[in-house]
Write a protein that binds this DNA or RNA. Structure first.
Lengths: 220, 220
DNA sequence: CAAATATTCCAACGAATATTGGAATATGTC
DNA sequence: GACATATTCCAATATTCGTTGGAATATTTG
């Protein structure tokens, strides 16, 4: 048993995970899959790439056992193979935000600062939402809300806000969230709400960030 | 401002971190650097590669801002640019162990099961060590012990155990640790100690794993 | 069983990466 | 200031990877 060789083997194995997360497209696919299971078609559409390319990337992710495929009727649905995978994505993104100045300034340009929460603020938000002092809305597609969402949040997909805007109380603060820091749906929702006279703000958290902070999701 | 383009940019940035950790050699360098700062020469020797190659890999890691270089006399010392980097390494390795069957069986072949600790066991070990009920020895080189070690552990480098073995009490349980799950120094140490009649066992934790579990290190 | 559709496989090309050898740079020592 | 040494830069090669086009597979529906 050669010490050097076994070591090489071990690091080689871990590097397979690293290789899987070394492509922007694959990272985006993981980010999307963190919202719940999706078909290849849906993934390709969300990521803005060809179905064949999406399939190829998914194959790589599957080879690294980061995602699982399951046939569901006529379609094949992919999903993350564990919550630790979504934690890894959050961890990677956090390191990137911390250490890559370019990403930091890009994010600060797109979003403003106070939208990032610490664990204490998250708890406080959850309590306020439970007491009804603020309205937390999940602006992702309804299916994603269905596969897990922030506690005490109600589903209000971006596409439907215009029609359903009267459901929201005009005298309460509204907090919108979507898929995470790289998703722009909550920003659009807030813009729309403000235009209609609501007091609205966004947070950068998605379900993955919420989980990574050690807080629970709601299922129904 | 094109939504698609900004998204591509963001994922591209995170992928730079992914690319940095997509090579086995770079992962090994990170693992070594998690033990404290090292010169290029020392890193190359530890990883068993040419100095030029080590320099090239370090350049990639530096470009991703995962490591920092600092001139120290005639040498250039590299170190991790933050504790979150070592946490990322632990996270990657954990996902790999969990999802890559090959790695799991390889590790189970090399190590036996009960050496992996949960947080509760870690705390209990720390308490026993404080009360002197067990002797925890750090078998890494003394310099690595110096840049941070488990609480109540004493330094007993693998090279020196033969000469210094009389320092250890024969009637106490001895627990050895080294750099982490991929390091084999503690296994060698235990073999040596058992041969001399000591009750010794190893744990797979290194300082990075200890930190990732939320437990403190000792400095002096 | 045949048609329709979703997904994957295969082939091929250009781009990016790992590795090695030789030269160049920079720091400390005399 | 010249020399020794550690480290990096540059060039070249083999290999791998991302992407796209066309064909093949598998499942549902009629």
């Amino acid at each position: 048993m050669d010490k050097r060789k076994t070591k090489d083997l071990l690091y080689e194995e871990v590097a397979r995970i690293g290789k899987a997360v070394s492509s922007p497209k694959r990272l985006e696919l993981l980010d999307i899959l963190a919202q719940g299971e999706k078909t290849v078609e849906a993934l390709a559409a969300e990521a803005g790439i060809d179905i064949k390319l999406a399939s190829a990337h998914l194959k790589v992710l599957k080879a690294a056992h980061l995602v699982m495929a399951e046939r569901d009727g006529r379609f094949i649905a992919y999903r993350l193979s564990g919550m630790d995978v979504s934690a890894l994505w959050v961890n990677l993104r956090t390191v990137a935000e911390e250490h890559l100045v370019e990403l930091k300034v890009a994010l600060e340009g797109i979003f403003s600062a106070p939208e990032k929460l610490d664990t204490e603020t998250r708890r406080s938000l959850m309590n306020k939402a439970r007491r009804g002092e603020v309205i937390v809305i999940d602006v992702r597609p309804a299916a994603e809300y269905g596969s897990g969402h922030l506690p005490f949040a109600r589903s209000m997909p971006l596409d439907e806000i215009r029609q359903r805007i009267k459901e929201l109380p005009a005298d309460k603060d509204i907090v919108a969230y979507c898929r995470g820091p790289f998703c722009m749906m909550s920003a659009e929702a807030v813009e729309l709400l403000k235009k209609h006279g609501y007091r609205a703000q966004k947070i950068t958290d998605g379900t993955a960030e919420w989980l990574a902070a050690g807080l629970p999701l709601a299922e129904s």
